[in-house]
Design a binder for these strands. Structure first.
Lengths: 191, 191
DNA sequence: CCTACCGATCGGTAGG
DNA sequence: CCTACCGATCGGTAGG
């Protein structure tokens, strides 16, 4: 782990704990036992850390989703793999994921708009899968936006209680969530 | 609407938009076209607004849940009513609900611990309903904590896309969510 | 509801 | 990685 990685690691953890605005550069420096001014050898501004975290994770999620869409053809299968992709990425580094999910609104106006664009694109990918499932007759005729936002909310909530050393692996969580939450979507399971 | 209510209203909306730390007393004053110092006729500190918002909403939700438990006997019915209670309260004032859900961590240490206690108690109420449903054989043998957190996450996510003048009423949303998300819980609908 | 102001803290820079 | 420091802004108070 390079010194730069150490700095980012501490900064992101602090931002997860007390928010972007609640974390001063002096807080970060104190934990690293150096002076605040010294941090500027590792980043140009405090916002850099937020920018990198938000955009890195957005890219990772999108790449995973694109891959799922390339490989699989069946909507139900696509959805299952998309769920697994999402969960495996966000539980990989829960601090980063928290910052990505909750602190992006403190990006500068321009960066924020770009970020929202990426998020919309990602949601669009899920919507397309649900639409496919509906037109193929695999999924029930539920409102697409409603279904997608409910699915993603359930997936993201995993962060609130996922413990890396807990009893469930990321794989098991993905399976359980898929069975539990997405049961409502499958047609043959409806009354 | 009294002047004090106006002040709180503006403050809470600002805090929803840019967070508790991202909202200065000067921001609030500017929108009301008064000086920052004048605000202190309406509250004693900026934290007062956060405290009132968080604890008022926690109390409202708990009272609703207690009532549900008093009136109904069947676990499935209790769960349905608890879901409706939760949704109807959080969509009543979406700004307050956002602050309640996301800004409580900026409460002072002591207040924060009390708040976490209230939240735990509320979750406990839901857990009890799920346990009842399981022991009565109405619900499948899913992990209780897992089920409750997934349910609450879905309910809270409503705030992200609920528009008071949208096509769905709070009642319809509650029904749809109950059918969609909670389908996984009911035993007779399992494969 | 205002003027006038306080001490503390903020993100960041110059220069080494 | 440090010393020394900048201007800006913060929550809040005194006194009217």
């Amino acid at each position: 782990m390079t010194r730069k990685e150490q700095v980012f690691d501490v900064a992101i953890r602090k931002m997860r704990e007390t928010g972007f605005l609640g974390t001063s550069v002096r807080d970060i420096a104190a934990e690293l036992q150096i002076e605040a001014a010294s941090l500027y050898n590792y980043f140009q501004s405090k916002e850099d850390i937020l920018v990198k975290t938000c955009f890195d994770l957005a890219e990772k999620l999108q790449n995973g989703l694109d891959e799922v869409n390339d490989i699989y053809f069946n909507a139900a299968e696509k959805l299952e793999k998309a769920v697994k992709n999402h969960i495996s990425i966000i539980v990989e580094d829960t601090n980063k994921s928290h910052v990505f999910l909750h602190e992006w609104r403190h990006l500068s106006e321009e960066k924020k708009n770009t970020f929202i664009g990426l998020r919309d694109k990602y949601e669009q990918g899920f919507k397309q899968i649900v639409e496919e499932g509906k037109s193929e007759g695999q999924f029930q005729e539920i409102d697409t936006k409603f279904a997608v936002l409910t699915i993603l909310s359930s997936l993201n909530w995993v962060l609130e209680w996922y413990k890396p050393n807990g009893t469930m692996s990321a794989e098991q969580i993905a399976k359980q969530l898929y069975n539990f939450v997405l049961l409502g979507l499958k047609k043959e399971r409806l009354q």
